[in-house]
């Protein structure tokens, strides 16, 4: 049974991720941030990236559009490592098409779980290391007015940039295919889904703390001594305001408020609040 499965998958693998599929994904992943927005981030770009392989997996229009719809959920990652997740996703979609019992929500759970860790790695490598090294060398040559500086900078960064994106897509797809085979045998999939949820939630909590910023500038006069409210927060519960802001948004979404109104509300509250001195300027 197991060998039969393997043969089946080998045949499938050749059929789905052919070189032209990789080429299509490679060209399209560059536009991952085209429809960047605060509520979806690069979801639309991700959906655009994997369209060709998805079409091949789902020849039927109904299934195809259902799959596209799945990938319009919030997604955000360092764009340079997106091909890895794209490859992995295609392998999972392939599995979902072959196995009717496959829980498609696990695909998004996997994407959410990988966002944080991969972005952490991606940001520090591409922005923090490769770019800084390339720019450092380029600036050194360019500061005397030598036009080779910009060219060397572009070459160093681009070689790394393009090569890793090509490799990442293959890596993601191969890893996904291999892993799914194993997990199918041990009936691991549903436990993996739960574990992915745990991973995703923990990382979201960490990202709220690290990325959402809001602090108050309010001060109170108590018995002649001035109390800075933010200092009070900082000593008891430092991230209170960002956490409150996030759950206020969750509550609004639960009430069915549209994203655009939440965005307008945040703009209005922040501008007025900063004008009145309630919020501290960033």
């Amino acid at each position: 049974m197991a060998t039969q499965n393997t043969d089946l998958k080998e045949a499938k693998k050749d059929a789905i991720m052919s070189p032209d599929m990789y080429r299509s994904m490679f060209l399209r992943q560059f536009t991952s941030q085209c429809s960047q927005s605060y509520d979806k981030m690069m979801a639309m770009g991700f959906m655009y990236t994997i369209q060709k392989p998805l079409r091949k997996i789902y020849p039927n229009d109904d299934d195809y559009y259902a799959a596209l719809d799945r990938h319009t959920e919030f997604f955000n990652i360092t764009p340079h490592v997106l091909p890895f997740v794209a490859g992995l996703t295609v392998s999972m979609e392939e599995q979902a098409a072959a196995d009717k019992n496959f829980d498609t929500s696990s695909i998004n759970a996997m994407k959410v779980g990988l966002m944080g860790p991969l972005s952490g790695i991606g940001d520090s490598f591409y922005w923090g290391t490769f770019r800084v090294v390339a720019a450092g060398i380029g600036i050194g040559i360019a500061s005397t007015g030598n036009p080779l500086g910009p060219i060397v900078y572009a070459l160093i960064y681009s070689v790394i940039n393009f090569a890793t994106r090509i490799v990442a897509a293959h890596l993601g797809y191969d890893l996904g295919t291999k892993f799914l085979q194993q997990s199918e045998e041990n009936n691991l999939m549903s436990r993996m889904t739960h574990a992915a949820g745990v991973l995703g939630m923990t990382v979201i909590g960490a990202m709220i703390a690290a990325q959402v910023s809001l602090s108050t500038a309010l001060t109170f006069d108590v018995g002649g001594s001035e109390i800075v409210l933010q200092d009070l927060f900082d000593s008891i519960f430092p991230g209170l305001l960002p956490l409150l802001a996030t759950f206020a948004c969750v509550a609004l979404y639960k009430k069915g408020v549209k994203t655009i109104w939440i965005i307008i509300g945040i703009f209005a509250i922040c501008i007025i609040g900063t004008g009145l001195g309630v919020f501290a300027a960033a």
Binding site: Y38, D39, K40, M41, F74, N76, V112, G200, I204, M207, I208, Q211, V212, S213, L214, P242, A245, T246, F247, C249, V250, L252, Y253, T259, I262, I263, I266, F267, C270, I271, G273, T274, F279, A280, A281, A282
Partner: peptide
């Protein structure tokens, strides 16, 4: 300030 807060929308949706 708003751009610092705006990030929370994505997390809220998640």
């Amino acid at each position: 300030v708003a751009s610092g807060v705006m990030v929370c929308i994505g997390f809220a949706l998640l």
